[in-house]
Nucleic acid binder design. Structure first.
Lengths: 175, 175
DNA sequence: TCACCTCGGTTCAATCAATGAACTAAGAAC
DNA sequence: GTTCTTAGTTCATTGATTGAACCGAGGTGA
């Protein structure tokens, strides 16, 4: 938020997390990173976010160690943004918020469904796999559109790629 | 957020949750509600939030069914804001975010510690009680300041009351 | 060689939201 | 009847977000 009167006086771990993650767009960027989005242009196409804001948020997430900015090609040099271990640790929070939104704010049901790949079981609200009892790590999850994923609102290449079932954190294939 | 270009086009449960909860201050208000804060004046004293913003956020949370506004005395008629069942379902999300902030953004360690009252065990990152293996419900948790709760920044009556160990959701006693 | 394309940004004026101080209202207490 | 408490509202100022335009490095095709 980086305002004059920050959350700093709050002396609270949640406040510190929100100082970074509570800004508009930031958690949606992180969500997209879990879905495999890695490039500036892909975030831009999928989120309809102002370019300046996207640049600022990516920078903040890199500074906080949530994303790693690393080259994916030389000549011309281009970079991609990939979740670090610290960033991947945000999965439980994102999962919990998403499930809450699915349960209480999505009349048509969840917009996405998650399958725990090692045992093929659908994962519930808590993020725990009913079959094996463990909390599902994001690398072990496959996403696919759920019943609440209504009429295809968006038709950019990134949204189309995200509608295909795919494993979390796997880089997006936008042909 | 309620902006012209909302998150609506996102067709995503997380985006819908953030539309409500992602606004500045909102999740801190919900956190305080878990800690037992219920009155306008107590939120105000503890959060240092502008009065107009607090009023707007409380209204939005009531409209969304996260808080219930109900009278706690007649003559003069006064209301308090209490978490609904839907609001209490936000605990996993808040817990996950708070633990992430404690782990990665609080150098001195967690600012608060949670004990699962039925079995007396400290609760870890995942929010699951190591002893009984269940996900701890907020009513079953006791909060107390942790090692990262540094020098008493704030000295309003609400902050002082919150420093005493107490059970989540129990109304705050500010004498 | 020159025009044009792509990708990843930066710049900037206009708009919208947050801030904080002052004000309001209704009843209680003195 | 004056003052206190609680729970707000109002409003000018400040600050962040938006969206359109621009920039620069390198590649491509004629």
């Amino acid at each position: 938020m980086a305002l004059g009167k920050d959350y700093v006086a709050q002396d609270c771990a949640l406040a510190r997390a929100l100082e970074l993650l509570g800004e508009r767009w930031t958690l949606l960027i992180v969500r997209d990173a879990f879905y495999g989005v890695r490039r500036y242009g892909d975030f831009l196409a999928h989120l309809d976010i102002p370019r300046a804001v996207l640049a600022a948020r990516l920078q903040a997430l890199v500074d906080a160690g949530v994303l790693d900015r690393r080259p994916y090609q030389e000549s011309p040099r281009r970079h991609e943004y990939v979740l670090t271990e610290r960033g991947r640790e945000l999965w439980p929070a994102l999962n919990a918020l998403g499930h809450w939104g699915g349960e209480y704010l999505s009349p048509a049901g969840p917009t996405r469904l998650y399958t725990h790949l090692p045992c093929g079981t659908r994962v519930g609200r808590t993020g725990t796999c009913a079959a094996c009892g463990r909390f599902a790590r994001p690398e072990e999850l496959e996403v696919r559109p759920g019943p609440g994923a209504d009429r295809p609102h968006r038709d950019d290449p990134v949204s189309r790629a995200l509608r295909r079932p795919h494993r979390l954190l796997e880089p997006l294939l936008t042909e």
